[in-house]
Simulated scan of single mutants.
Amino acid sequence: MRFTKVTLQGFRNLPLVDVTLAGRRTFLCGANAQGKTNFLEALGYVTALRSFRGAESRALLGLGQPQAGLAFTVEHETFGESRLTITLTPQDRVVEWEHGKVARLADFIGKFPTVVFSSQDIQFLRGSPSLRRRWLDLTLAAMDAAYLTALQRYTRAVAERNMLLKQGGRDVGALEAFEHELAAHALTLVARRTAGVVELGEFFHAAHARLVPEGERAGLVYAPDSVVASAGEFTAVLVKCRPRDTLLKSTERGPHRDDLELVLNGRPARQFASEGQQRCLVIALRLAQAAYFRAKGGVTPVLLCDDVLGELDPGRREKFWASLEGEPQVIATGTSRPANDGGWQILSVVNGSIAS
């Protein structure tokens, strides 16, 4: 897949952007807070119709703007040349492409895959489990409609059970109904996460091996909150936890508490890996995500590199470029031009304006 033309209006601090992307490598150069990351955020929005920063729609609108418009022309392995348009308002989004208006997220998510490499990715190791769960959910849901459906229904059931708990948990019949629904979807999520982490782990190990010296071995370990063999067993766990959950007014057990651990040479990377090793691990995780998308969907994702290449020493940068498979389009940002800019289309970003 490759973006060939991007038009943005009223998106973040980008009042009007209309650029043609030439070749496979584009570099957006400019000082901080000029709009480079906002441009990548707009491109990344097409994968799951959500911001990779986790921002709500209203935060994506320019100051004082009633809406934002995003239009993309994309060369695609399956759909050929496609044009996508997205209109964002504080309350809604409208997505249209050759197949018509998108009515359901499941009909669109993952069709136009992008993978974002960010300097903030280091928080995968250092941050809370919710960051790693979110990454895993987005990765699996983009390629598995059944996973997305189970995740949406499980999340709604948790919200409904929590509402009942906040009311004191007096309606036992309603609690039981939502607990049975939770249990069914929980079993699906755990099974698909288990299989998905095995596949991602293989891609992760291979990507990491291409970035580091011999002797370092990386892996992914899925850590489910509850290990149960059936929906009935998970229902029993929820029933047992009701008194405590009622006091806390929230559901404390289940897949929404799962974790994903990165390990290096058999030990937790967050505790034993050096700064340089940690950065290689999170880059390998993103490369694994790209390989997973390509294997599952048959489409080479666009790589959006937000100010990360400059953080790598020359040796690691060289290994990064050598590790890329399938000749992906790379759109990168930085405050200074690449050391070797012969193969790059260079775009200058100044105060929300982007030009060659």
Rank of each mutant, 00 (worst) to 15 (best):
R2S: 13
R2A: 11
F3E: 10
L8G: 03
Q9K: 14
F11K: 04
L16G: 07
T20P: 01
L21W: 00
A31Y: 03
A31W: 02
A31T: 10
A33D: 12
A33I: 05
F39H: 07
F39S: 08
S51R: 02
R53H: 09
R53I: 02
G54C: 06
A55Y: 12
L60S: 01
L60G: 01
Q65D: 03
P66H: 04
P66K: 08
G69A: 13
L70R: 07
T73Q: 14
T73P: 05
H76N: 11
G80S: 09
E81T: 15
T85K: 14
T87Y: 11
L88A: 07
P90G: 10
R93T: 08
W97K: 04
E98L: 13
G100T: 09
P113S: 06
S119V: 08
S119I: 04
L125M: 06
L125H: 02
P129H: 10
P129D: 06
S130N: 10
R133P: 03
L136A: 14
L140I: 15
A142M: 04
M143R: 14
M143W: 12
Q152D: 14
Y154E: 01
A157E: 02
R161T: 10
V172E: 14
L175S: 03
E181R: 13
A184L: 11
H185F: 12
A186Q: 01
V190F: 00
G196M: 09
L200Y: 12
G201L: 08
H205F: 13
A206L: 13
P213A: 15
G215F: 06
A218N: 03
S226W: 10
V228Y: 05
S230H: 08
S230V: 10
G232Q: 02
C241I: 01
R242V: 03
P243T: 04
D245L: 12
S250C: 15
G254W: 04
E261D: 13
E275Y: 04
R279K: 10
R279I: 00
C280D: 11
A288S: 01
F293N: 02
K296D: 01
G298E: 00
V302T: 14
C305E: 01
C305S: 06
D307H: 03
L309C: 05
L309G: 04
G310C: 05
R316S: 01
E318H: 04
E325G: 06
E325T: 14
S336Y: 09
R337T: 15
N340Y: 07
G342F: 06
L347A: 06
S348M: 10
N351T: 11
I354E: 08
I354T: 01
S356H: 14
